[in-house]
């Protein structure tokens, strides 16, 4: 990798200070655990003149009860989240997602906010400056052609964060802070399916916290993913499922995916699959529903067709496990 480029570090003590710095200098980047941003700086993918270090902001840490659910500060680490008793018992899928990110050493510093804003990834993008220059760069950074889809004008880098799908199936909201005030929106509203502009946050906005709602009695969640090695690697595809059973029927079903598109994808139309048990006819309907909405591209070393099969298999087995789970 390259030597670190020069930058200045700002060390705000409050969130208001942090977003004020960002408003004055839109090219600055927020730094929390650094597990995503620092390698990208070292690869020359991003070169912020200023890095805004969020480590000194106490109000971004901590997990508190809120309206029957939980409020999770954006600077809570993935290790803290995965180990939190209430998260483990009430939001099992979220604990599994947090506990499965990268390896334990990354989870010690990587944060909730960082994982939600994780830069989209591609084999043509997450490479050294030398490698990318030899390949005439790419559409996402400094280049003009997307090597994944050379005839298109769109970047297909994949969103690979594990927390977002687990949060989407429980209907989580995010608190966003900016100098002009704060707003609370459903998590899905901050993403769009564009590998370059995947985040719908203004330049002066920052995620302050995530709000988890109280879940309906019997609504169970799970998260599973496929990756080359069971630690360190980003997911080839990840599946979060939320399911509530009434008698022999699935009464409620929500599915969200990561690794398949440039945003975490909440599958639409799952209510059409409820009302009966997860029999073969239902599962075939499920495969078709998901197959129409996902768009894995050749942005990883595993081919798109394989990732399609992995998504179908993971979703089927997760639904069966949650259905049978009591």
């Amino acid at each position: 990798m390259e030597y670190m480029p020069e930058f200045r570090t700002a060390r705000p003590a409050t969130m208001a200070e942090a977003v004020a710095i960002k408003a004055a200098e839109p090219g600055a980047r927020f730094l929390a655990g650094g597990t995503d941003l620092v390698p990208n700086i070292r690869r020359g993918i991003v070169a912020p003149p200023t890095v805004i270090d969020l480590a000194g902001i106490a109000e971004m840490r901590g997990i508190e009860p809120l309206a029957g659910g939980l409020r999770i500060g954006a600077a809570v680490t993935l290790a803290e989240l995965a180990a939190h008793e209430r998260v483990r018992t009430a939001y099992g899928g979220l604990a599994q997602a947090a506990g499965g990110v990268a390896a334990n050493t990354h989870r010690e510093v990587a944060t909730v906010g960082g994982n939600l804003c994780l830069d989209t990834r591609c084999v043509f993008y997450n490479q050294s400056e030398w490698w990318r220059r030899a390949n005439d760069y790419c559409l996402k950074s400094k280049g003009e052609v997307c090597h994944v889809a050379p005839k298109g004008d769109h970047c297909f880098a994949a969103f690979s964060g594990d927390l977002a799908p687990a949060l989407l199936v429980i209907g989580a909201e995010v608190e966003i802070i900016a100098p002009k005030g704060s707003r609370v929106v459903p998590l899905g509203a901050i993403y769009q399916d564009d590998g370059i502009d995947y985040l719908l946050l203004e330049a002066d906005e920052m995620i302050a916290a995530v709000r988890l709602p109280a879940l309906a009695e019997g609504f169970r969640t799970g998260y599973a993913k496929s990756h080359v090695r069971s630690a360190i690697d980003f997911p080839l595809a990840g599946v979060a499922v939320g399911l509530r059973r009434e008698g022999k029927a699935i009464a409620e079903l929500r599915i969200a995916l990561t690794g398949t598109n440039s945003m975490p994808l909440a599958i639409e139309g799952t209510e059409g699959l409820t009302g009966g048990p997860p029999d073969e006819a239902m599962l075939e309907g499920l495969d078709a529903l998901i197959g129409r909405q996902i768009q894995p591209m050749s942005s990883t070393f595993s081919p798109p067709g394989y990732r399609r099969r992995v998504v179908a298999k993971l979703t089927r087995s997760m639904i069966r496990a949650l259905y049978l789970g009591g």
Partner: peptide
């Protein structure tokens, strides 16, 4: 780049990847 763990040190008793930490 934070992918192999060779640079692991302890910070307040917890493992930390020193090659991706400022």
């Amino acid at each position: 780049g934070g992918e192999c763990g060779a640079c692991t040190v302890l910070v307040d008793d917890r493992p930390r990847l020193s090659c991706i930490s400022l």
